[in-house]
């Protein structure tokens, strides 16, 4: 599974994300090729916009 697969699964459509896998930041253009190992600590912080 890649970062992009995971985001799709979670329904995270917002484009303004800060994503890290096991503490390593993943750039937006690398979501599709960055694997998510089993048990990895994945964080997807939605930056505020809106309002």
């Amino acid at each position: 599974m890649t970062v992009q697969n995971l985001l799709d699964e979670l329904g995270y459509t917002y484009p303004h994300l800060v994503v890290s896998v096991d503490g390593n930041l993943v750039r937006h253009d690398a979501y599709s090729e960055t694997p998510v190992p089993d048990g990895a600590d994945v964080r997807a912080i939605h930056l505020m916009a809106g309002g």
Binding site: A44, H46, L47, M48, G50
Partner: peptide, 16 residues
């Protein structure tokens, strides 16, 4: 009015 604070993502989605 949302121009004071818009915290929904921080609070509800990110659990920050």
């Amino acid at each position: 009015q949302h121009d004071e604070a818009w915290l929904i993502f921080m609070d509800q989605v990110n659990n920050q």
